[in-house]
């Protein structure tokens, strides 16, 4: 296992709105070993989304350093950050953010379009990714024809299709009911456990944070708690829906 995928040193971010200066991050130093599943919890305004945006190379810190896989990327240009996002990072959003009136497959293929992958490869890999979340049979459906849980599974497939090292999930279950949330978390933990993808997940629900190896608690732009968790999950009795789901996935990807 190769060391640390994420390493931040004294990460600070300030926003200025006229005369008002908001300190969104006040010196975050954190290391995430490759393959870890990290949950970030905290109230809204605690800085967790800003931190996620910097981790996801969507934003740059005002000061401090951010190393992704050992490379300092704190002050990369917009284009370089776009390349990093394309090659290393997968995003899952609360609002799914699928492109409307576009088939599930085309949505999944989107990162490959910008990654310069050939049309035929886009197709093959797009279908593989859909298959991994158990939705290969829904490839032609538009987002409006899919349930919330299915839409989020398509979004996960989209995040996976580039074989990223890091999966960032911002409240992925925030718009879903409890049992669907369980299905989504099941898929995410399997990706973490079986494929070694590092996961950073923002949530404010303790039950969701419970899936993680480690929980970071944010308040007012600082980490106030950093707790490792035992991993009871794989052996814990899962709700029936979850168990079925995981069997489905296992069968379809087999």
């Amino acid at each position: 296992m190769s060391g640390r995928i994420i390493e931040t040193r004294d990460l600070r971010k300030t926003f200025e709105f006229g005369d008002v200066v908001v300190h969104a991050l006040r010196g975050i130093s954190v290391e995430v070993p490759t393959g870890q599943f990290v949950a970030i919890i905290g109230k809204s305004g605690s800085g967790k989304s800003t931190f996620m945006n910097i981790l996801g190379c969507l934003d740059r810190p005002s000061s401090g350093t951010y190393r992704l896989e050992g490379r300092d990327i704190s002050d990369r240009s917009a284009d370089e950050r776009a390349e990093l996002r394309s090659e290393q990072i997968g995003f899952v959003f609360q609002a799914f953010n699928l492109i409307p009136r576009t088939s599930a497959l085309e949505n999944v293929e989107l990162p490959l379009v910008y990654g310069g992958v050939s049309r035929s490869q886009q197709h093959i890999r797009g279908l593989e990714a859909l298959d991994r979340v158990g939705l290969a049979h829904r490839a032609d459906h538009h987002p409006s024809q899919l349930s919330g849980g299915e839409q989020q599974r398509v979004a996960i497939a989209r995040a996976l299709v580039n074989q990223p090292r890091l999966l960032l999930a911002d409240e992925p279950t925030g718009n879903l009911d409890t049992s669907t949330s369980g299905e989504i978390m099941q898929i995410i933990s399997e990706l973490n456990r079986d494929q070694g993808i590092t996961v950073v997940l923002v949530t404010h629900e303790p039950e969701i944070a419970a899936y993680a190896d480690r929980v970071l608690t944010f308040r007012d732009g600082e980490i106030i708690a950093d707790a490792a968790q035992l991993q009871p999950l794989p052996t814990s009795p899962a709700p029936p829906a979850k168990a079925e789901m995981s069997r489905d996935v296992a069968e379809e990807s087999a």
């Binding site: 284009d79 776009a82 995003f91 699928l98 989107l110 990162p111 910008y114 580039n162």
Partner: peptide
């Protein structure tokens, strides 16, 4: 979304 998944300006 396009930018998040790797589209440049």
């Amino acid at each position: 979304v396009r930018m998040a998944v790797g589209a440049k300006g």
